[in-house]
Design a protein around this nucleic acid. Structure first.
Length: 595
RNA sequence: GGUCCAGUAGCUCAGUCUGGAUAGAGCAACAGUCUUCUAAACUGUAGGUCCCAGGUUCGAAUCCUGGCUGGAUCACCA
């Protein structure tokens, strides 16, 4: 319709004022709800051609459009705004199209014939996942779904930072104070157990530093030379040369961590197509660096360390290999990127990584480009904002880290309390109930996070926790459950409704309003993909749900005499339920049949 | 200090890319609506210097410049 309108406006301007107007000047927007009309044309840009008042110009263009587009049933001009009213038949017709198209708004996966790689999660193996990781995972997973809905082939990939000094610290602490414990013996998730040893290391290390300082050592020196740190560094060296004992322990403890992570991923409902490990890719990274050094793209300092000079690009020098030849973070990321292009020949690669690493990705892209990989430009860093507490950043030292598993189970508990208080599902089995609590609890959590623009920082208040009323996941899920309930009742009463609509049928205002929102679905999916924002999808779900609830409140679906009306309303409900399910699905949120 | 990002109602956020009408939601507050398809809902009231100052424009929360405030980053950490 927009296309038709744009063309006709062009025609109108030419015919009325003899001027060929540029498409960019034709601004069409949804009519503000305080005015009558559906689509509004802003006429200000045309005043210089018409040389008339805004009202008069609007009137003239309006007349032309009404005469030449049969779907336009009327118009009004207020100030410089030409509000066009669409014929009800137009909306009935778009409704009919939605009913007939089961994939309405969703493109077939692969129809774009291009592969998008989405990297998300990227955990370190020395600590359990926390709220920040939850945001990362949810954004990555949802964006993958959104890209798929836009027709792309999507590969969800994870890179595990499984090597380095951090994991050695946990290993060392386990050796010293672990007394041979395992997740089974300690009855603890593996990631939590390993995390505990990391914390233990830091604690003992701090004690040592303090002891050294109290005995007259310089603090900076004490930090560098404390025996525990030396031991950890020695262990890292052993790992790098493949010392069997160290590598075995490394494998064992990382294994515990992965088992723990898998549980969290499963609880969150996220998954990956491929998992990369830093311990594999850093080798390729080193090769890349060494050959680029040979080609003169990089340079070596006297101490043997390898650097890239990005001062021409407005950045600094950046180290790529330490003087002892070992790899740094950037080295490994070069290898990972290369490996992935080799694996998938991606059209685009999206890194879902926090905005604290903006500099790192700026360097990565420049570096890949400098080395000569033409796909460097196809890398995009989706720099998402931090999750903060009301008093600022989460800090492990102050014990304010919000643990992922804890938060998830708290959300489910809240859902349980609330459901039991309302008592609507008392008759269901424990298994069914738990399933519903999980869907609702996670729905609340996911929606809370995904409705915020990924690029912005957001605040989470543990005291107030997450709401279940208003603009929330459960509100949308509730509406879905209501729709399902009505449809079940219709089936019980043996009411069959047909998947067609008589174009003579005249819907009421609320119904038209709902159809308009439904008609906006494909555009939302498209724009959410272009802008890479989950917030747009979440807001759409809310708008749609609100529209349906108003309709539901004001009109009865089943208890109407007129078969045609009932038929129409049942279809409207079913379509709405379907779109809610689809759009929530794009956020990775399930919807319950009842709640 | 350099670079980047943000600042919208008491609180949490839309809207900013692509300028458009009287800036929207939810929560919290207040007042209503359940013998009728699920009240986790619906309706209403109140709540604004869109951080500040300039500029561009017929028109600025939106674009540009400067400032203020907050955050991130500038490691032989990841």
């Amino acid at each position: 319709m927009e296309k038709v309108l744009t063309d006709k406006v062009k025609e109108a301007i030419f015919s009325l004022y003899n001027y060929k107007v540029d498409e960019k000047q034709i601004q069409l927007q949804k009519t503000s709800k305080d005015f009558t009309g559906d689509i509004t044309l802003v006429v200000f840009p045309f005043l210089r051609f018409s040389k008339k008042k805004p009202e008069e110009t609007g009137e003239e263009i309006g007349n032309y459009l009404q005469e030449n587009i049969k779907e336009i049933s009327g118009f009004n001009t207020i100030k410089g705004f030409l509000n066009l009213e669409m014929d009800k038949k137009y909306w009935i017709e778009s409704f009919r199209k939605m009913i007939e198209d089961p994939d309405f708004g969703i493109k077939k996966t692969g129809s774009e014939n291009k592969t998008i790689l989405v990297e998300f999660s990227s955990p370190n193996t020395n600590k359990p996942l926390h709220l920040g990781h939850i945001r990362n995972n949810l954004i990555g997973y949802s964006l993958s779904k959104i890209f798929e809905a836009n027709g792309y082939v999507v590969k969800k990939v994870n890179i595990v930072n499984d090597r380095g000094i951090h994991i050695c610290k946990s290993m060392l602490a386990w050796q010293k104070w672990g007394e041979g414990t395992t997740p089974e013996i300690a009855k603890k998730k593996g990631d939590k157990l390993v995390g505990d040893f990391y914390v233990r290391f830091e604690k003992e290390y701090k004690k040592q530093v303090q002891f050294l300082v109290e005995n007259g050592a310089d603090e900076d020196k004490a930090i560098m030379t404390a025996p525990l740190l030396k031991e950890a560094q020695a262990m890292l060296l052993k790992w790098e040369v493949g010392d069997k004992e160290v590598v075995d322990l490394w494998n064992r403890m990382n294994g515990w961590v992965y088992k723990g992570f898998d549980k969290t991923y499963e609880a969150l409902g996220v998954s990956f197509d491929k998992i990369y490990y830093e311990s594999d890719t850093y080798i390729k990274g080193k090769e890349i660096v060494l050959s680029a050094l040979k080609n003169g793209v990089l340079f070596k300092k006297e101490d043997g360390s390898v650097w890239v000079d990005l001062s021409k690009e407005g950045l600094d020098e950046k180290i790529l290999l330490r003087s002892d030849g070992t790899a740094v973070y950037m080295t490994q990321d070069l290898g990972t990127a290369y490996q992935r292009y080799d694996d998938y020949k991606f059209f685009r690669q999206i890194y879902v990584v926090g905005n604290e690493q903006n500099y790192h990705f700026q360097v990565l892209v420049l570096l890949l480009d400098k080395i000569g990989y033409k796909w460097a430009k196809d890398i995009y860093h989706l720099s998402y904002g931090m999750v903060e507490l009301p008093e600022g950043k989460m800090k492990s030292r102050e014990g304010t880290i919000v643990d992922a598993d804890d938060l998830i189970s708290e959300m489910i508990d809240t859902a349980r309390d609330m459901s039991e208080e309302l008592g609507k599902i008392d008759t269901y089995s424990e298994k069914q109930k738990e399933d519903i609590f999980r869907i609702i609890g996670l729905g609340a959590l996911k929606y809370f996070i995904l409705k915020v623009d990924p690029r912005k920082n957001m605040t989470f208040n543990p005291k107030e926790s997450i709401d279940f009323n208003g603009n929330t996941g459960p509100f949308i899920q509730y509406t879905y459950a209501r729709i399902k309930s009505v449809l079940r009742k219709a089936a019980e009463k043996n009411i069959k409704f047909q998947k067609k609509t008589d174009s003579c049928f005249e819907p009421n205002e609320k119904e038209i309003e709902l159809i308009k929102i439904l008609a906006g679905f494909p555009g939302v999916i498209r724009d959410a993909g272009i802008q890479m924002t989950t917030a747009m999808v979440a807001n759409y779900c809310y708008e749609l749900t609100k529209g349906f609830n108003q309709f539901y409140h004001d009109f009865s679906i089943l208890n109407v005499d007129n078969d045609e009306t009932r038929n129409f309303r049942l279809q409207l409900s079913e379509i709405t339920g379907g779109i809610i399910e689809k759009s929530m699905g794009l956020l990775g949120i399930d919807v319950p049949e009842r709640m």
